[in-house]
Amino acid sequence: MRSYYKEKRSFSFSNLCLFFVLLFLFLPLIVVIVYSFNSGRAMVWQGFSLNWYRELFTSSVGLWKALWNSIIIAITSSITATILGTAASIGIKWYRFKGRTYITVATYLPMILPDVIIGISMLIFFSSVNLPLGMFTIYASHTTFNLPFTFLLVSSRLDEFDYSTIEAARDLGAREYDTMVRVVIPSIFPGILSAFLMALTMSIEDFVITFFVSGPGSTTLPLYVYSSIRYGVSPVINALSLILILLSMAIAFTFRRFLKSFAASA
């Protein structure tokens, strides 16, 4: 049977739109990358140079400190969010108990609230209890905004889990601990891993919430970029952009098989 929609038409309205959308998405990034090799400061081409890269790697101490802070926060908050989210999704999927709806709603709400609200409410909370702003407050806030995603990703993996495996393990005399470590966790591990990676990228990326709950000495990479943009743009940021764009390409390429399920979960 001939299909009207399977005809290979390379030139159609929708393909044209996709082309322009991709052009629109990439044009600014390409410009930044090209100008990172410019010898001048302004947006006028003055010749090829690697000056900004030299400056990035040799005389940007603040930047490397900020990157280090970002990495620490990302790893600690993602591990916490993944462990709490995984445990809770097991508890909430498999049991009925008082407070179940409350925990579910309170976990999902941060996902739909604007970042500014989460940032401000945490700032006001931390100030009210006199908790000094710094690495801990950033860690706490990142864990909180990561929880809905780790919880959601592991829960949807648990939906596919065949519960009779647990009954089988029980019948064979496995205790709760053995059932978890040897049966449940290995089979939902892909979900746990994707939850962890999602949390890592969101933590590294976050600016707005971190902006409110950070204190002196706890600058993260996005905060560093922000202050460079706000207080005198330096082309060093162009050089940094290339590295960050390459990094996101490398991550996307590594997980190219999972991009479709990522799109579905986003």
Binding site: L25, P28, M43, E205, V225, I237, S241, S248, I251, A263
Partner: peptide
């Protein structure tokens, strides 16, 4: 892949690119 790259690139870098 092409849609996700800008999506995963630091949001401040993307705003900065538009300022340029």
């Amino acid at each position: 892949f092409l849609i996700i790259i800008p999506f995963w690139t630091n949001s401040l870098i993307r705003v900065y690119a538009w300022i340029n």
